[in-house]
Every structure is written in structure tokens, then in C-alpha cells.
């Protein structure tokens, strides 16, 4: 249990740091930036306290906001995906989720990809909507969501593969 808390705190700090140091400065093709810090919400222990997940997600978003000078956009999107996460888990993993037997890292590739994709794209869509605050840019927002989202999903998958070395 204690181990899990330390793990998550370390993950929080690590993801925020690489986000602001590296991934905010990618600017691929001028405007595409990935936001792999949402991996924290993806990997947050399942079946644990939901209120805790909501609160830490808010904190995560607000920390990134502070560095991006973006008010509360990241916080709002993070809290939202943290809130809808249980339902997505339920629809993807079904019965296994109800028995608390799901681990995102150990799930099958298809399920894992689907889960991450839904979370990431919801997050990005909300984020870019709040950023532009204007429905007339919807094409631009969707385009940005698609490209940045794909980039983020790819990075998340890479991170999971890299950091889930089988501890035996």
C-alpha cells in the first residue's frame, strides 16, 4: 500500500517535470504538442478512493496550468476524465472491473489501447475547446485534438512498455 502511494507521487512529479521540460516544447509542425502527463490518471490504481483520484487529478491539471499560464484548462479536462474513468473502465473491461481484477498495465493490448485512446481524446478535446473558448474554430480544434491525441496515445503506450519492466 505504502509502496503504491510512493509510486504514484513519484509518477506525478516525473510526468509533470517531463511535460513542462520536454513535451511542452515539441511544437511539431508548429502547433502539435503531446500531453502524456494524463498517463497519471490512466495508471491511477483502480478501485481505490474515487474522491482521491478526482482531487489528485485536479492538482495535476492545476500544476501543469501553472507552468503553462493557462488558467484552469488542464485542471478542468483532467477532473472530467478522472470522473468518467470508472464508466469507461466498466464498459471496456466489464465483469473483470467489477471484481477489481483489472490492471491497465497487464491488460490486453486492444483493451489498453481503447482505454487510453478514449481518455486521451476526451481530455484533449476539452482542453482545446477551453483553450480557444470559441466554437467557430471547431475544425481547427478537432484537427489539433486528432493529431495531438494520436501523439499522446503513442507516447503513453511507449511509456507503459518502457516502465513496466516485469518485477519478479
Amino acid at each position: 500500500m505504502n509502496n503504491s502511494i510512493t509510486h504514484n507521487i513519484l509518477r506525478f512529479v516525473f510526468l509533470v517535470l517531463i511535460q513542462i521540460a520536454i513535451f511542452n516544447n515539441i511544437n511539431f509542425l508548429g502547433y502539435i504538442n503531446p500531453y502524456p502527463y494524463v498517463l497519471f490518471i490512466v495508471l491511477f490504481p483502480i478501485g481505490d478512493n474515487r474522491a482521491l483520484l478526482l482531487f489528485t487529478s485536479f492538482l495535476l491539471g492545476l500544476t501543469v496550468d501553472m507552468f503553462c499560464n493557462s488558467g484552469g484548462m488542464h485542471a478542468a479536462s483532467c477532473v472530467t476524465i478522472a470522473y468518467i474513468r470508472p464508466w469507461i473502465l466498466q464498459s471496456i473491461f466489464g465483469l473483470a472491473y467489477e471484481y477489481n481484477a483489472v490492471k491497465v498495465v497487464k491488460a490486453g493490448f486492444g483493451q489498453r489501447l481503447l482505454f487510453i485512446t478514449i481518455l486521451v481524446f476526451t481530455h484533449h478535446l476539452l482542453l482545446f475547446l477551453l483553450e480557444s473558448f470559441n466554437f467557430s474554430d471547431i475544425i481547427y480544434i478537432l484537427k489539433k485534438t486528432l493529431f495531438s491525441g494520436a501523439f499522446t496515445v503513442l507516447l503513453c503506450l511507449i511509456f507503459i512498455t518502457l516502465f513496466s519492466v516485469k518485477r519478479r
Binding site: D65, M66, C68, G71, G72, A75, A76, V79
Partner: peptide, 27 residues
């Protein structure tokens, strides 16, 4: 809790869209 946190972040977001911005969340 979700509604409360969302409300706080939306307030920050709306503040950030005006000229002089949130006093708390800046770099």
C-alpha cells in the same frame, strides 16, 4: 466533488481569458 473542482477550474479558465488574469495560477 467533481462539480466543485470543475467549477473552480472553469473560474480560473474564464479569468485567464480576460486581460489581467488569475492572481494565483501563473508561472
Amino acid at each position: 466533488l467533481y462539480v466543485l473542482l470543475l467549477f473552480i477550474s472553469l473560474v480560473f479558465t474564464i479569468q485567464s481569458h480576460s486581460y489581467h488574469r488569475s492572481k494565483f495560477v501563473n508561472s
